[in-house]
Amino acid sequence: MSETALKTQPARQAWPAAILIDFIARALETTGMRPADAAIVGELMIEADLNGADAHGIFRLPQYVQLIRDGAINPTAEISVKKTAAATALVDGGNGMGHLVVKRVADTAIELARESGIGWVGCHRSNHAGSGSVYAAMPVQAGMIGIYAAVANANHMAVWGGMEAALGTNPLAIGMPMGEDRQLMLDMATSMVSYGTVKKHAMQGQPLQEGWMVDLRTGGPLIDAAQSSHGLLLPIGGYKGSGLALMLGFLAGTLNGAAMGLDIVDFNAVTDTPTDTGQFVIAIDIERFVPRAQFESELRRHSKALKGTARMPGVDEIRLPGEQRNERRARRMKDGLQLAAPLVAKLNALADKLGIAPL
């Protein structure tokens, strides 16, 4: 798309979720992915956008296509499940698309939890799977508590006290049903922001916030997103965030026989090498502890009470994890997803390259 055309476009345009899912599926089918699998990936990617994780949805499509075409991801992988005990299993992703692998992980965890009260399922030979809340929400939709964590697909943090990229942003998501079509959902990176957010800012020419990254050349804050290769993401809570990233990395990576630490392959820089990504999902059957209706009622009661506590000056409303997610998803399903003009241009350039209809 020409620069003139970009300037005449509105900054953002709303697209129905179904249109974007179809676009993703058509793009992935050109890589050799089976149509049914491509449709599932499209749905899971757009679910991230609907929930507000804009750096983990359709924004990632050009990168995924490149990784598949260069051989880092197998578009027709066979995913296998090995049940290792009554409540545990290990999934071999076959180096397939991460969304398909982690969906199988979540589905297996739910199945085990129905039988045993809890299901802990890990995986190796997986890939980047987008937003963690998408997978933590799967047990929630089955009336359970869902927990997801992963080893990130690139190292952008140092071990506390270090100055070398040796840890990922290793994310954690925890979801709980509240009834009345509501849920609590914590979805966080162990860094101040995800690296996808940094990439999104770079594409849109937006500055980073001070406190997100440190510039290794100066020791000061790094504000220019285009210079992010010269910086490190800062962990949440100082040494506590670094320690949490480390432990989640061992649980999602080492425990599953997947990559961790300095063994991580940076999928932003290397497009022809499998990443051997590790993830896990835990599903907990609430009924094994208390009646589900009682649990959900208590969550609603406590949430109302906590939101009614005294607020700091300048705070209009106390929000709990997932409230904005619930509201945003409903709004975006109704009004469509707004994509920035640079992203639309990039997606249409990809469509032209793949020989499919543009947005």
Rank of each mutant, 00 (worst) to 15 (best):
P177F: 02
A349R: 13
T273S: 09
A87G: 12
Q183V: 05
E115C: 12
G243W: 10
I118L: 14
M213S: 04
E43S: 13
K346S: 15
R329I: 09
A87M: 12
G253Q: 01
S194N: 07
Y195D: 07
G57D: 03
T88Q: 13
V214Q: 08
A55V: 06
A330D: 11
A225N: 06
L20Y: 05
R300F: 07
F295K: 10
N95D: 15
L234V: 07
G52E: 02
R125H: 15
G32V: 02
A86C: 07
H201R: 15
E29M: 15
K7E: 13
N155F: 03
D263T: 15
G238Y: 05
G175N: 12
M213G: 03
R332N: 08
Q227V: 02
S228G: 10
L350V: 05
G57K: 00
K240G: 03
Y239M: 12
T197A: 13
G196S: 04
L262P: 10
V214H: 06
L172I: 15
L112S: 08
L354T: 00
W212I: 08
S191Q: 08
V281W: 00
G261L: 03
T76M: 13
R288G: 04
N127A: 14
A18N: 13
T275M: 11
E296I: 03
A18R: 13
R332G: 01
R60G: 00
L167S: 06
G122Y: 00
L208C: 05
G336I: 07
V265M: 12
I145N: 07
K353V: 08
E327C: 04
L299P: 04
I286Y: 07
P358Y: 09
R12Y: 12
F289S: 10
Y148F: 15
A349M: 06
Q66R: 15
G314D: 05
A39Q: 12
P35V: 04
K199H: 11
I282V: 14
G57F: 00
S116V: 05
L343C: 07
M1E: 13
S229Q: 13
D49N: 15
M144I: 08
G161A: 09
A245H: 05
N170P: 01
V121L: 02
D266T: 11
D181I: 04
R300G: 06
I356A: 02
S131W: 08
P274T: 11
V121P: 01
G231W: 03
A86P: 07
F23T: 01
V193S: 00
V65S: 00
T169K: 03
G146T: 08
G143C: 10
D187V: 06
A53W: 09
D181C: 06
K200Q: 14
Q279A: 10
L350I: 06
S303P: 11
I110E: 04
G205I: 05
N155I: 02
G314F: 11
K103G: 01
D263V: 11
R332Q: 14
T8Q: 15
V265A: 09
A39T: 12
P221R: 06
N95Q: 13
A85E: 09
A330E: 13
N170A: 04
M138F: 11
P62A: 06
M1W: 13
L216D: 02
Y195C: 03
V91H: 02
L20K: 07
A48T: 04
G261T: 07
K307S: 11
I318D: 02
K82I: 08
I40Y: 08
G161P: 06
L343I: 11
L233S: 09
V290Y: 10
T254P: 08
I58Q: 02
N74E: 14
K304A: 15
